[in-house]
Computed example of a mutant assay.
Amino acid sequence: MPPCRAHQHRQPPAPPPPRCTRQKGSMTVLAATVIAALAVAGCAVLVAAAARTAAHTAAVAADMAALSGAGALWQGIAPCAVATTIAADNGARLTGCTVTVGGDVTVTVTVGHMPATATAGPA
């Protein structure tokens, strides 16, 4: 049986069109840019969280130091010495301590570069 003529004249399939080479590697650049942006955003969040934690720690240390200083004053103990110890125990450094004639103790502490001030005394 002779071969079918329809098969004798069939052309091979055309090759696919050439790929555009101008964008070769552009997804790598895009992926690197996205990763870098996410890393910068992550670092910003960490810095903000650290600052917030330091501010909170400073506020708590100032409150505790002022209350302890006021309590020490009423017991006849040097209030600023007690406030210094309490501030250090709470991770802060006492940078200022004043005692008024009325018995109020005002302290200023710092944690890192975050300052906080608190006053305690008789109500």
Rank of each mutant, 00 (worst) to 15 (best):
S68C: 04
V99N: 02
T33L: 15
C80P: 03
R52T: 13
A54K: 06
H56M: 06
T95N: 11
A58F: 08
R10A: 14
P18D: 05
A37M: 15
A92R: 00
M27C: 14
A50E: 15
P79M: 02
A72V: 01
I86K: 04
T21K: 09
C80S: 00
C43E: 05
K24Y: 13
T53Q: 14
G91H: 12
I35A: 15
A66M: 01
A51T: 13
A44G: 15
Q8V: 13
T28Q: 10
A41R: 06
P79W: 05
V40K: 13
W74Q: 14
A61C: 09
W74H: 13
H9R: 15
T33M: 12
G96T: 12
A66P: 03
T53I: 12
P79C: 03
P18E: 07
T57Y: 00
T85N: 04
R93N: 11
R52E: 07
C43G: 13
S68G: 12
C20P: 12
G71H: 03
V101M: 03
A87V: 00
A66L: 00
V47D: 04
M64I: 00
A44R: 12
L73S: 08
A92E: 01
V99F: 05
T57F: 03
A87E: 02
H9F: 10
R52H: 10
A32K: 04
D63Q: 05
R52G: 11
V40Y: 12
T95K: 06
A14G: 10
